[in-house]
Design a binder for these strands. Sequence first.
DNA 1: CCTCCACAGGAAGCGCAGGAGT
DNA 2: ACTCCTGCGCTTCCTGTGGAGG
Length: 401
Amino acid sequence: MPEQIFQNEFEKKTVFSDRNLIMPHHTPDELPFRDEQISDVSNVVAHALKDKRPENIFIYGKVGAGKTCVTKHVMNKLNEFASSNNVCAECCYVNCRTHNSKYRILSKIVKDFYPEENFLGFSAAFIYEKLLSHAGRGNHVIIILDEIDKVRDLDELVYGLIRGNDEIDKGSLSIIGISNNVRFKERLDPRTKSSLCQQEMVFAPYNAIELTEILKQRVEKAFKPNTVSDSAINLAAAYSAKESGDARTAIMLLLKAGELADKSEKSFVTDEEVRKARKAVEEEIIFSLVNTLPEQQKFVLYAIAKLSLENNPYKTITGRIEEGVLFSGEVYREYEKVAKHFKESAVSARWYREYISELEIYGLIVTTNSGKGIKGQTRLIKLASEPAKIKELIESEFLKQ
DNA sequence: CCTCCACAGGAAGCGCAGGAGT
DNA sequence: ACTCCTGCGCTTCCTGTGGAGG
């Protein structure tokens, strides 16, 4: 039986030549339209090769604008160059989503330098000293903090690392911070801010033309020749450019489209696959979004979906007629019923409004302020996607438990 | 014009979990 | 091991707002 499955899988036709090259985490050798940024980062980092401390860099840009790719690319090149020329400069990459405190970051860095030793359970001070003595031997250490906004005690971390430079005669410590959150910089301690932002760089999102070129390059490497039509690539680029200019989702879109082609045993990826892939990706996002919602918020969303289905007689708003539009108060009362049904107590009306605002930020619902024709001031709520699907999704979630 | 309605959203404060300091 | 502190989710209370209706 397994032999049969293996044999089938082995013989299965595929449009991919090397699927790994189109996975989201893969760092490509070439980064189109980022030459300027690469040389900017390299110029700063290059000081380390001349036994000088590179300035700290703060890189800001939206998701999928190539921030991580560019820094990782420069990091790899620098590490290569340093080791082949016997220079004591090294980069160390930390993703702060998983290492989100000073202690975790420091242990991760030290562990990278001494892979054979185990630092679990050692005090923060010990690990800090270990890092300092490593740098103090003449090493120029550049620490890349990706998603730096996720660090809980960033002020202390930055302060500690900067101050560390005063305590060592040789070598140095520098930071490259990467973030996609604009407002995060504002909450920083002014001293942290000024030392972290010695050099500031902004990565603009890609436009449709650039995305097309990026996708073409990836397709050439990851797909078999002539399996992806030009218009499919253009479509994927156009979708992503319109929404965010995000290269990562554009690439994901093509990966998904390729998978769909394989599944239906087609040997080409066309517009149709890209369109289907987009729908699938959207649904996946909604699915995971809804799944991670707190229970009470699921009740609220469920109440909205339920009412949207029931209230089919269209609600009239002066001048226009819309389907599935609900009043805030009406939803709250329904939500109370839903919560009661599941034997949970409902949150207060005030907090329910916070839930509504949050659901809107997530893009699960759309709200507008009531205008003329409606008593008082209230919000009109509408589900952003199909009510039946949302209702079904949440119902299946609760049946599982 | 005033009052009422049906909410929006700010401010203060409460209870709790979990991390830091001792 | 213990306190202390802090952030988080939430409630309570309150003021503000814009249209309906008298």
